[in-house]
Design a protein around this nucleic acid. Structure first.
Lengths: 180, 180
DNA sequence: TTAATTATGTAGCAAGTGCTACATTTTTGT
DNA sequence: ACAAAAATGTAGCACTTGCTACATAATTAA
């Protein structure tokens, strides 16, 4: 039970990296196996089926993202500064692959496809929680501003996906105009 | 050239309906053919390949959406009223399938996958244009508020995909607080 | 009417999918 | 050292994918 668990962890990390780089679409057992230096046969030895595999891999990816976000944490800042700050964050090359994967996850989750739907909900909650911790405001306000932050950042991520940066910048101008 | 063109149009409409209901994932030639009451063989008779087919079908779907939006048009209203109005619109059962498809489109577009990337850009521009026409403001402000509206509505659509309505409503409260 | 064009059917290929059966080697606990 | 358990290899199945070859029937243009 020693060597096996370790090997599984190794393999899982490589699969997570591969999914993060190449997306859910290239997540067939065979290509995952190749990326992890093993065979599809072995993957189904470590995991009961593909759904279990994806659940564990995506959970790990999600945990990795949380770690990254924790490291990039600042002291709580006002809402109007938080949005541009998070925009910078999701443009960061380290974070960007996660956002791209998030878009894929949402697309599948919107059809209630498992395990994607459950995982997406979990990640969504984590991110709202994260926003909440970063906002400088009282609790009642946080409860409104955290989801609002999440919404705006997600919307920005979508525009970014189709290379609409000029529009994003215009929108951010409009956003800060509004704070007056 | 008479009967053929007509039949193609018929088939294309049925395919559009099918894609709208079942998403891009269920867009194999065989399932599209079945939905259209023909064979994959015939689809490749009318279209050079799958990419051409998808381009035409998605363009048609996009045109249909524009028509629906035009019919739901109001007189220009202020920005802070427009967002809730558009939220109601995307919850409309007629519109919702389009939004769901849009999420799928964005996921593929974010990888620059064709023809999805090009079509997504085109639809994105249409929607920003549509927002712009609905905002009651001067031109300079419109240029900022239209993309901002688009961002917020898209963000809301994503939360909606994972059934986060309570969070959406909280966010909208926060949003209207801000207008003061 | 005849010749050319267009429409449609039937079969199949090569590649990819998740997964399984059956075997053998390797590791582990005793 | 030995038996139980875990790891790994090799083949394959049944299915889906986009697409093609080869044929025949229907329509259109002359």
């Amino acid at each position: 039970m020693k060597k096996g668990e370790l090997r599984k962890q190794e393999i899982q990390e490589k699969m997570a990296k591969h999914i993060l780089t190449n997306g859910l679409q290239s997540g067939s057992l065979r290509s995952l196996a190749q990326a992890a230096g093993t065979s599809d046969r072995m993957l189904l030895h470590y995991y009961q089926d593909k759904e279990e595999l994806m659940t564990e891999v995506l959970t790990q990816i999600s945990d990795n993202l949380i770690t990254i976000l924790e490291q990039a944490r600042t002291v709580p800042i006002p809402f109007n500064q938080l949005v541009p700050h998070l925009y910078q964050l999701i443009k960061n090359p380290v974070v960007k692959p996660y956002i791209q994967l998030w878009l894929e996850l949402i697309a599948r989750a919107s059809k209630k496809e498992e395990p994607y739907y459950s995982i997406a909900k979990q990640i969504g909650n984590s991110f709202i929680q994260y926003c909440s911790e970063l906002i400088q405001a009282d609790d009642e306000e946080k409860e409104k501003l955290a989801p609002l932050t999440f919404i705006i950042v997600e919307g920005i991520a979508m525009l970014d996906a189709i290379d609409f940066e000029p529009n994003i910048n215009k929108a951010l101008e409009g956003f800060s105009d509004f704070q007056k």
